[in-house]
Amino acid sequence: MIRTDSVVLTRCVQVITPITLLVALYLFFAGHNQPGGGFAGGLVIGLIVVLRMMAGLQQESFARLLTAVGIIICSAVAILPLTWGATVLDQHNWKYDLPVLGELKFGTALAFDFGITLIVVGLAMAVVIALSPNPQSEELV
């Protein structure tokens, strides 16, 4: 990628990476009942991936893999209810009572959201690679 040996950029990106990932994680889980969700979380992760690639902290891209796996997860969530006779994209929720965290709710929507996140991150990577001046970039996508 664009190899600039700017110490400021590199250090800053290194520092904000974990914070951004935490924000993304929050958005991802908040999305069930509040603003946020897989798409917003994916965008935030995508942003940090773009920054890391521009700062030269990350060379390789898994755009194709992430997008494909994301689509497969989403489609699998859509189709699976058919196996027990429900309609496509039928929802199911599980509740657990955990000692410290309290009541924890999981839904099939969570897996779907995770697929969306993967697609968005993959897309962000693909965009950076496609716009980079590297002539071999097409092979990376």
């Binding site: 194709r64 997008t67 494909a68 796996v69 497969i72 489609s75 699998a76």
Partner: peptide, 8 residues
């Protein structure tokens, strides 16, 4: 789904 596998 076919599109995803074809991409992989």
């Amino acid at each position: 789904i076919g599109a995803a596998f074809a991409m992989l």
